[in-house]
C-alpha cells in the first residue's frame, strides 16, 4: 500500500517533491491565515466574559495544537527512518524541529499575553502552559542532540531516539501535569478550556489551524531542501542545482 512513498527515500526525489509542494503550501498558508486572522480579529463576536482579548484564541489554540502535532510528526519521521533506514525521514524530522519549537513558543507567548488581562499575571503554572513549556524543552533537547554530532547520519539516529522517547512521554507528562495542577490550583477551571464554542468563533479558528499547518509545511519544505543540499553537497545533481540558482541570480 505504501509503495508510492518509496521513491522519496532518495534525496533527489524528496527534493523534487519539496519543490512541487512549496508554492501550494505558501499560497494556502497565506490565504488561510489572512482569512482566518481578519475574520477572527474583525468579524467574529467578542466573548461575553473576556471581551476582545478573547481574539488571541485564534492564534493560541492553533499554535498549541500544532506544536504537539509537529512533535508527533517528528516522531513518526524518526520511526520511519529507524524501521526503513531512510535518510530522508531523519532529514524531515530535523527540518520540522525548529518550526515546531517556534509554534510552541507562540503558544506560550500568546498564552502569557492572554493570561495577563485574564488572571492578572503574565505567567501562571496552569496545566496547559506548563505542558507547553515542557514540550519546548523536549524540542530543544532534540535540536541540541542533533547539533552535538559531527556525523549527521549518527545525529539523525540519536535525535530520532530522543524524539521517540519524548513522544512516549508526552501523554504521561500531560496527564501528570494536569493532575498536578488540580492538586495545587483547587477547583479553578482553566479559562483555556472553553466548554462550548460558538460556530462564528469556530470557523476562523479552524481556518487559522489549517493556515498554520500549511505554514509549517511550507517552512519544512524549505528546511528539508536545505538539509538535503547540506548532506548531498558532492552529488552532481546538487552541483547542477547550485549552478542554476547562482546563474538565475546574475
Amino acid at each position: 500500500m505504501w509503495k508510492w512513498l518509496h521513491p522519496y527515500a532518495k534525496t533527489e526525489r524528496a527534493y523534487q517533491l519539496c519543490i512541487t509542494l512549496q508554492p501550494w503550501f505558501w499560497a494556502g498558508a497565506l490565504l488561510c491565515l489572512t482569512v482566518g486572522t481578519v475574520w477572527g480579529l474583525a468579524f467574529a463576536p467578542q466573548d461575553y466574559q473576556q471581551g476582545d482579548s478573547f481574539r488571541i484564541i485564534y492564534i493560541h489554540v492553533p499554535s498549541a495544537i500544532l506544536s504537539m502535532g509537529t512533535y508527533v510528526a517528528m516522531a513518526i519521521a524518526a520511526l520511519v527512518g529507524m524501521v526503513w533506514q531512510w535518510r530522508t525521514a531523519y532529514m524531515s524530522m530535523i527540518a520540522m524541529a525548529p518550526i515546531g519549537a517556534v509554534m510552541t513558543f507562540i503558544a506560550l507567548f500568546t498564552g502569557a499575553a492572554w493570561g495577563k488581562p485574564m488572571w492578572g499575571a503574565w505567567w501562571v503554572w496552569d496545566a496547559r502552559l506548563t505542558s507547553e513549556l515542557i514540550l519546548l524543552f523536549l524540542y530543544m533537547g532534540v535540536i541540541a542532540l542533533y547539533g552535538a554530532f559531527e556525523d549527521k547520519q549518527q545525529a539523525g539516529k540519536a535525535a530520532g531516539v530522543m524524539a521517540l522517547v519524548g513522544v512516549v512521554n508526552i501523554p504521561i507528562i500531560h496527564y501528570s501535569v494536569e493532575w498536578w495542577n488540580t492538586l495545587h490550583q483547587g477547583a479553578t477551571i482553566s479559562k483555556f478550556d472553553n466548554p462550548s464554542i460558538a460556530p462564528e468563533m469556530l470557523w476562523p479558528l479552524l481556518i487559522n489551524l489549517l493556515g498554520f499547518a500549511l505554514f509549517i509545511g511550507a517552512v519544512t519544505t524549505v528546511r528539508l531542501r536545505n538539509e538535503i543540499v547540506l548532506r548531498e553537497l558532492h552529488r552532481p545533481w546538487v552541483q547542477a542545482l547550485a549552478k542554476q540558482h547562482v546563474e538565475g541570480k546574475r
Binding site: V219, V222, N226, L230
Partner: peptide
C-alpha cells in the same frame, strides 16, 4: 495584549521563514 500577541506571532513566523530562505541561498 491583542496586538502584542498577533504582532510577535507573525514576526517570529516571518523570522523563521526568512532565515530558512537565507540559509538556502548561502548553502547553494
Amino acid at each position: 495584549y491583542v496586538w502584542l500577541s498577533f504582532g510577535v506571532t507573525f514576526l517570529v513566523m516571518g523570522i523563521i521563514a526568512i532565515q530558512s530562505y537565507l540559509k538556502q541561498s548561502s548553502l547553494l
